[in-house]
Nucleic acid binder design. Structure first.
Length: 234
DNA sequence: GCGACAG
DNA sequence: ATCTTGTCGC
């Protein structure tokens, strides 16, 4: 199955594919040193099929931006809870290929294994590209947990069907927690440690935060440009 | 059947 | 996800 073909899948076929991919998930310590990390995100205008994907590369652990890439693509696969990867991975892959230097770890905006079939977008991307990934989501998809204390970096484990699938992290006081889970080829502990290191005064960790800012700029710069099929004042 | 439901 | 000003709280 190729990402370019995702848009032809029915939801039932997409779920069947997730059951296949699930057999290959590897949640284990990343043994090689981490010298770079990157954040990836998608932006788009509601009701439009154009999607703006972007990735921002940072040095690690100092977290200096050292590169970025973006891609303007299209998708007809709708947003369906649990099937986010089929909508966003194809475009992210285009941006990934344009990235001059590949990061040692990639942080995606969404779940890793904290997913009903353990196939959040971070796990999906990591699996098909064979790259260590971490999922950092702004809201919960599945899993039970106790609310973490209202204290910076307070955390609480998330469980699903008796399995530890992620942790709810209070990245900033008085803010809702973010949900961290390993994607692929990395451990739960490393995922949490790395994300904590990437919290720099904001609720969202730097890699994902910067990627979000990038894709929004790309979208605003392009969706307002003459020549676009949507700027015609009909 | 009912409620939940990443972005 | 995106649309949007003010506004409440630290």
């Amino acid at each position: 199955m190729q990402p370019a073909d995702y848009e032809h899948l029915t939801p039932a076929q997409a779920i069947a594919y997730q059951h296949e991919l699930r057999k290959q998930i590897q949640i284990k310590p990343l043994e090689t040193p981490i010298n770079t990390i990157a954040g990836a995100d998608i932006s788009y205008n509601k009701y439009e099929e154009t999607v703006y994907a972007g990735i921002v590369l940072f040095s690690y652990p100092d977290l200096k931006i050292v590169g970025n890439a973006n891609a303007i693509s299209r998708t007809s696969f709708p947003y369906i809870s649990g099937l986010l990867a089929f909508r966003e991975v194809p475009a992210l892959l285009e941006a990934w290929e344009k990235l001059e230097i590949k990061p040692d770890v990639l942080v995606l905006d969404g779940q890793g294994i904290a997913h009903e079939r353990r196939l959040g977008i971070a796990t999906h991307f990591g699996l098909i590209m064979n790259v260590p990934t971490i999922g950092s989501a702004k809201s919960r998809l599945t899993g039970k947990y106790e609310e973490p204390d209202n204290e910076p970096l307070a955390q609480s484990a998330m469980y699903d069907k008796g399995e530890l699938i992620g942790i709810a992290l209070r990245s900033k006081r008085n803010c809702n927690p973010i949900y961290i889970s390993p994607g692929h080829n990395i451990s739960m502990q490393q995922s949490v440690d790395i994300i904590k290191h990437c919290i720099r005064g904001y609720r969202i960790p730097e890699p994902t935060r910067q990627a979000h800012l990038l894709v929004n700029q790309v979208r605003l710069a392009n969706s307002a440009k003459p020549g676009n099929q949507y700027d015609l004042f009909t």
